[in-house]
Structure formats: C-alpha cells, structure tokens
Design a protein around this nucleic acid. Sequence first.
RNA 1: CGGGGAGUAGCUCAGUCUGGUAGAGUGUCUGCUUUGGGAGCAGAAAGUCGCAGGUUCGAAUCCUGUCUCCCCGACCA
Length: 424
Amino acid sequence: MKLSKLLFNSLKESPKEAKIISHQLMLRSSMIRQHTSGIYTWLPLGFKVLKNIENIIRQNQDEIGCNEMLMSTIQSSELWKKSGRYTDYGKEMLRIIDRHENELLYGPTNEEVITDLFSDYVNSYKALPKYLYHIQWKFRDEIRPRFGVMRGREFLMKDAYSFDLTEEGAYETYKIFFRSYLKTFLDLGLQPIPVKAATGAIGGDLSHEFQILASTGESELTYDPKLVDSNLFEKSYEEITLMYSASDEMIDKSKSDVIVGRGIEVGHIFNFGTKYTKPLECYVLNKDGKRITPHMGSYGIGVSRLTAAIIEAFHDEKGIKWPINIAPFKINIISQSNSELNEEIENIYNTLTSKYNNISLDDRDLSIGRKIKDSELIGIPWTLIIGNNYKEKGQIEVIRRSDGDKVFLSKQEIENFEFEQYTP
RNA sequence: CGGGGAGUAGCUCAGUCUGGUAGAGUGUCUGCUUUGGGAGCAGAAAGUCGCAGGUUCGAAUCCUGUCUCCCCGACCA
C-alpha cells in the first residue's frame, strides 16, 4: 500500500490521557481513536494488526478441530434468566429495552446462547465431543475502563465452547485447549505463563489464566521460573501443571523459589461441567437411549487486548517493534520525494509486493528523516531506504527494526533476501 | 461506587488567583528554498474557552447547576 493513501497521522506528542506505553504508541501511530470511555474506533493500521492477530488465533483453533461460527452481539435476556446469570452478572451487563419492551442485552459472553444452540442441533452421543468458537465483539460495562484497549468496555474476544459426553472427556478436551493456547501465544511471539486461577462468574472447578509478563500488567502472579521457556509447548499438560504458578487470589504464601511478577491476562480457560447444560436442559441420548447432560468448557482469548499486550512486550523509545507475522506491513520502502528514481522504486515495490503481499511504500512528500521516524514509530519490521546510496552506488539500505541492524543490498539481492527470517 | 484531577486550535499547554472580549509550540494549508534522522524562510486558515443558567456595562476568568474525560482503589478476556 502506498502510504499517501493511508488514513494515518503520526503524533509527536502523546495525548495526555494515555498513561501506559502501549496506549501512547497506539494513539501516536494512528491505530485507534477513543470514541468514548472504554470504546474505540480501530483505524486502518490498528485494524490490520487486529486482523493479523485474529488470523493466528483462528489457525490454531482450526488445528484442534474447532468450528468457527458467529453469534450475535445482542442477546435475548430469556436464556440468562434460565441460567440464573441475568441477576448474577449485575451492572457489568449492558441491558437494552427494545420498542416492544423486550429485555435484550449486549453479550458479555456466550455460554447461554451456545448451550441453547447446541441443545437444538445435537441430539446424539455420536456427535460428541464438539468444539465451537467465534471471534466477536463483547461488551462489559467495566466500573473503570483504563489503559486504552487493555481494559476497554467493548472488546474483541475469541471464545470457544466444548461439549463432551463425560467428565473425563471434558478433562481431555481441557488439556487439548490448554496446549493449543500455549502454541497460539508462542506463535504470536509471546511467552505465556499458565497460572491456576479462580473461576469467577463463569463458574466451574478447573481454570487457568494465560499471562504475559509485563510490568504494567494488572494482575499479580507467582510462578516457577522454569515456566518461562520458549519450548514449553514440548512439555505435556501434566509436566507443566506440576510446576507452581498462581494468580493473586490463589497465591500460596508459604512457597519459596518462585518469582512474583505482574502480568497481562490474555487468555482464560474454564472447565465447568454441567453448570449451564443442566439449567438450560441440554442433553444428548447415549447408546442406551438414556438422556445424558454434556460437560462443558469455555476458552477465551482477548484479541483486542493482545494488540496492546504485544506492544507492551515489543517496543523501545522510538516506537513499536512488531513481530513480522503481526505487523501491519512487513516492509516499508522509503524514498526521497521528487526523486528521479521513482520508476525503479515502483519496480522494487511491485516485486516485493508480489512476493510478500503486505508491503508499504512511503510516497508522501516528506523529508526522509520524517519517514524513517514514522517507520520506526509504526514498528514495521523492515525499512528499505532508496536514496543517495542507491543513486551513487546502487545500494539499498535495509534496516531491521528489532535491533537497528543495517545491511546494504543491491536491487538483485533484495529480491532474494529472506525477510521472513525475523524474530524481534 | 469512594477518593483525587482535568475540560481553551488536530495534539501538548499558557491565560483563570487579580473580569476588559483568545495566546504559544507543534501539526495543517500556500509559495520558495530544501531532501540521509521529525528541514529553513515567508504567509495563511483554524477555538460559540465542555454545556446551561446567573452576577456584571463587560465573563475563558466570579457564582450555581450539569455533562464528559483521566488517575488511585474494589470486579474482569
């Protein structure tokens, strides 16, 4: 994409409401704009990042046989009255009355809707287990929204729901999701710490949060340092859960040899048995024709929060440093304006675009210094400068955002350069 | 919800104490000069001073009410 076409306006100073680095950088780089407290418009750059994260999550869900679907944002209150949560959920729930005086709500989560749907569509034990998910906007009327999209009221969440015939089956499913979550966060370039967690309003007896370590994180956690391991996925569920970790309300004060830190909760998984299937009268028939109440679990990932969490993990004083598979653009080509090289540059841009399909060309009429600053702020993994060095020596300067390393390559070499081999 | 703070130009802020009719930096626009690290010069546009009411000859400034936003704490992906 040519940056002259992009709705984008970098800010030198950060708006005063932004207190944490990810919020500041998201505002300065035109990723988001606040609409009202805890509610944001995703501008083109932020939206690209959001979609990239979403796709990595989607691939991982699909890998474990999860069905993607899309449930509505607005729900009827009826099912919530059946499950008992219409009163339990309290003021966090945004309630809406339609013109016929019907009570509706903006969904904060989807256990009721999915259980009702499953109950209608699945009648036989042969269909189990089934995993369903969607990626949809949620609304929770937080007491105090803060830190930009880190704690918004409206947020994008991937929520999956599993249905198993037995408690044992549900436990096996829980382990599958547990491991899939580790892989998802590692794919996103993050180091997840799974911690035993309280189950809160969702209910149930088994639950893990997935935390990303960050000093600005909202939750306190303690963990065995061995959990910080980029090969964590190689270990089994049992091996991992033997290592100690706990979120604040579960902390065992007598423990030693553990690290106390702060984290950003980016995922949460629950195993809650028949908590919803029972009140909503969801059942399937077993081979004896007897009614069996399925065991459920639910599995959330905060997609919009992850954009902020990733920035918290990858930034420096100059701006964001996106991992290459999340970056809004992989490569940004910078040139001088009014250059005689325009045709050459256009060629290089087209060649790289056909290879990587996600390249930007900064064709704005600005000084080269300004373009470099913007490229750093936005956090594009590779910046190519086609300027004096190219004119004089045929060299393109290639700068890697992660560490600032530079190499000078010819036009020929650029076409064969392995840009994908990149970790921040 | 309790405690604290703030609303003045797109952004950062001064002006409010002591009332006299709107300022700076940055960004934006135009022209010229520039072009390797947020360039220089000249010119321009841009704000019903959050909103409503009151006091006053006169209100960004004083008074009353109200709305919004932010920060600290208790809940959550």
